[in-house]
Design a protein around this nucleic acid. Structure first.
Length: 329
DNA sequence: AAATTCAGCAACCGCCGATTT
DNA sequence: TAAATCGGCGGTTGCTGAATT
């Protein structure tokens, strides 16, 4: 016989998570840490399957997740890594701190695919679009050294590097110390605010805080930072803009990000790409060395591989190429 | 102003390798 | 060793708000 099932399939709730459920889940994880998902529904009383709990945590509630617009730098990274790795969203996400694989996947499907198709048709007007051609074509057009990865073996080599470099990811288990869980209350805070915004009397199931004080009460009961005063904004756009600003300001991760979208700003970001990424990798290595030294004394993080350096350098070159082309639109 | 279409994204589904009993 | 679930991943769906007609 195998293991007993993680949860009873009968009476499992589906659909969007409510703030109440989120609070229960976050509270539990703050106390016990992520993992052992099969015990979460039982121990919390949540009418969700363990998979749903894990997904909610990893894609939304986990600390350090950045939401909102992707920077040109992030865009370039995704395009390049997708060309190299294919639709390995988890692997790509490991190179983009603060972004979830789901977010990257969504962004690729809704934004970048179209963008690249546009570019592709501009570069090759006679090309007949097809579902699989985009990636292949982009691969040829933007990865000038793609011959380096023509064989499966070489692709596996890169995967090995990716696996190795997962140690650099803030998302791997070793670097998620329990002290960081507190910041997930910010996610809850944000969620509650968005939920209030979208709540309507037509949905009687939701227990909507009636005013900002109620919201703050809920937040304070969670020990949340209530850094955003939503009462003074006239329009939704103004509200959203200021909320995003407050959110960005209160973000737990201080890694430098540039949200500018105009061309000059974009190029500036791209030009700083290599340095920034190398600096980031070094920082993450330092973090991991510190973390590991707690877990396993005297362990050493491997240095940057030649191939990884190549990846960054290539990324810089191709992204700049992309930017030159994108100025056509 | 109402109806329709489009776009974005959270969450579900199904598959697969790892793990447990 | 076999059988069953877990955990993780990528593909897809369906809901909601925005944009367009």
């Amino acid at each position: 016989m195998g293991r007993p099932p993680c949860c009873d399939k009968v009476g499992i709730k589906k659909g969007p998570w409510t703030p109440e459920e989120d609070i229960v889940l976050v509270s539990y994880i703050q106390e016990h840490g992520p993992g052992n998902w099969r015990s979460v529904p039982t121990n919390t009383g949540l009418l969700r399957c363990s998979k749903s709990c894990r997904l909610r945590w990893t894609n939304y509630l986990r600390p350090g997740i950045k939401r909102g617009n992707f920077t040109p730098h992030e865009e370039g990274m995704i395009i390049h890594l997708q060309a190299l790795l294919g639709n390995k969203w988890a692997a790509i996400a490991s190179y983009l701190p603060q972004r979830t694989d789901n977010d990257i996947k969504n962004y690729w499907n809704t934004h970048l695919k179209k963008k690249l198709k546009k570019l592709q048709s501009a570069m090759d007007p006679h090309h007949l679009p097809s579902s699989d051609s985009t990636t292949t074509s982009i691969h040829h057009q933007f990865v000038s050294k793609s011959s380096c990865f023509k064989t499966n073996r070489e692709r596996i080599n890169l995967d090995m590097i990716m696996i190795n470099n997962n140690n650099l990811s803030p998302y791997n288990n070793s670097s998620l110390s329990t002290t960081t869980y507190a910041s997930s209350t910010e996610n809850i805070s944000r969620l509650l605010e968005g939920w209030m915004r979208s709540s309507s009397p037509n949905n009687p199931e939701k227990v909507v805080p009636q005013n900002n004080n109620d919201f703050n009460k809920v937040s304070n009961s969670m020990g949340m930072p209530t850094t955003f005063d939503q009462s003074s904004y006239q329009t939704k756009a103004e509200h959203d803009h200021n909320y995003e600003a407050a959110w960005e300001k209160s973000s737990c991760d201080s890694m430098h990000e540039n949200n500018g979208s105009d061309h000059d700003e974009l190029l500036a970001v791209v030009e700083g790409h290599v340095v920034e990424n190398k600096a980031h990798v070094v920082t993450m290595q330092e973090k991991n060395v510190k973390q590991r030294s707690c877990d396993h004394q005297n362990s050493v993080t491997p240095p940057l591989s030649f191939l990884e350096k190549w990846l960054w350098d290539e990324s810089f070159g191709h992204v700049q190429e992309m930017m030159d082309l994108s100025s056509m639109f």
